[in-house]
C-alpha cells in the first residue's frame, strides 16, 4: 500500500500538470473559432455525457491541423525554431563545458563561490537581463562604443534585432542550465580512474576523451535537453531582440493567440510543437535503455 502511494505521487503529478492541460489544449485545438468569451465554440462539454462525446468524435474534423499544413509559414517557423535551438544548444555546450570542467577541477574551497557566481544572475529578473543586453548590443550601445573607441570597427555594428542577438541572448540565458548538470556529473568523477588511464598509457588528452567525456555523458545530455527544449519555444528573446525576419514558432503562436484571436489554431500549433519535441525524446530514451540493457 505504501509503495502504491509512493508511485501514485509522481503519476498524479504527471496527470495533473501534464496530461490534463494537454487534453484541454487538444480539446481547444479541435473546436471552432467563435466570437465569444472565450473565443471558441466547445463542440463538446465534459458534462454532456457519452452521447455528446460520440457525436463529437463522429463529426470530428481536423480542420485546424489541415490548415497548418496548407500554409508554409508554420513549417518554416518550426524548422527555423529547430535550427535556432540546435545552434544555440551547441554553442551553449561549447561555452558551458569548459566552465563546468574548470569549476570541477578548481580547489574544493572555491567551488561553492564559483557555483554561486553562476547562479547569481538568476536573482535579477529575466526581463531586465534581456533589456540589459539590448542596451549592450544596440547601435549606440556599450559594445559598439567600446569597439569604436578601440578602433576595431569604423561603423557601429548592427547586432540588435538580428538572429545573432537572439543567439547571444539564448546562450547567455540558458548557460547555467548547461553548466550545472555537467558540473554535477564531473564532480562525481573519480580521479583515480584518470590516474589509472594514464598508468595504462593514455595521454592526458586521450584520457579526457576516453574517460571524462563518457562519464560526463549523462550531464551533457541533461544540459542539452534543458537548453534545447525551452529554446525552441522561446518567445520573449526573439520578440525583444530578434528582427522582423526572425521566425520562431513561439512568435507565430503569439500572433495566432493575440492577433488572430484564433485559440483553436494556436492550440493546434502548440500540440504539433509538443509532438515535435516529445517524439524524438521518447525515441532517444528508448535507445538509451536498449543500450543499457545490452551493456548490462
Amino acid at each position: 500500500m505504501r509503495r502504491f502511494a509512493l508511485i501514485a505521487i509522481p503519476y498524479f503529478w504527471l496527470l495533473a500538470l501534464f496530461l490534463v492541460p494537454f487534453l484541454i489544449v487538444l480539446k481547444i485545438s479541435l473546436s471552432d473559432l467563435a466570437l465569444a468569451r472565450p473565443p471558441y465554440l466547445p463542440q463538446w462539454n465534459f458534462g454532456d455525457g457519452w452521447e455528446a462525446l460520440r457525436a463529437f468524435f463522429a463529426d470530428l474534423d481536423m480542420e485546424n491541423f489541415v490548415f497548418l499544413s496548407e500554409d508554409d509559414l508554420y513549417w518554416r517557423a518550426y524548422i527555423s525554431s529547430l535550427r535556432i535551438a540546435v545552434i544555440s544548444t551547441v554553442i551553449t555546450l561549447l561555452v558551458g563545458f569548459p566552465i563546468a570542467y574548470g569549476i570541477a577541477r578548481s580547489p574544493v574551497e572555491w567551488r561553492p563561490t564559483l557555483l554561486m557566481l553562476i547562479i547569481l544572475p538568476f536573482w535579477t529578473s529575466f526581463l531586465i537581463r534581456v533589456y540589459a543586453w539590448m542596451g549592450i548590443l544596440s547601435k549606440e550601445g556599450l559594445l559598439n562604443q567600446f569597439l569604436l573607441w578601440l578602433g576595431v570597427i569604423g561603423e557601429p555594428l548592427t547586432i540588435l534585432n538580428t538572429n545573432t542577438a537572439v543567439y547571444i541572448a539564448i546562450v547567455y540565458t540558458y548557460l547555467p542550465f548547461m553548466i550545472l548538470p555537467i558540473y554535477a556529473a564531473l564532480d562525481r568523477l573519480d580521479d583515480s580512474l584518470l590516474e589509472a588511464a594514464e598508468d595504462l598509457g593514455c595521454s592526458r588528452i586521450q584520457a579526457f576523451w576516453l574517460v571524462t567525456i563518457p562519464l560526463a555523458r549523462n550531464g551533457i545530455i541533461a544540459g542539452c535537453f534543458l537548453v534545447f527544449i525551452p529554446a525552441i519555444g522561446e518567445v520573449i528573446i526573439p520578440s525583444l531582440m530578434g528582427g522582423s525576419g526572425t521566425l520562431m514558432i513561439g512568435k507565430v503562436l503569439w500572433e495566432e493567440f493575440f492577433s488572430n484571436r484564433d485559440w483553436p489554431v494556436a492550440s493546434a500549433v502548440a500540440i504539433i510543437l509538443l509532438l515535435i519535441l516529445i517524439i524524438p525524446i521518447i525515441l532517444f530514451q528508448r535507445n538509451e535503455q536498449k543500450q543499457r540493457e545490452a551493456e548490462g
Binding site: 509559414l73 522582423s244 525576419g245 521566425l247 492577433s259 484571436r261 484564433d262
Partner: peptide, 19 residues
Amino acid sequence: PARVQRTVTRLWTKIKSGV
C-alpha cells in the same frame, strides 16, 4: 470578421518577416 482577420494577420506577418 474572423476569416478576414486571418487574411489581414497573415499579410501582416508576410510584411514583417517576409515569409
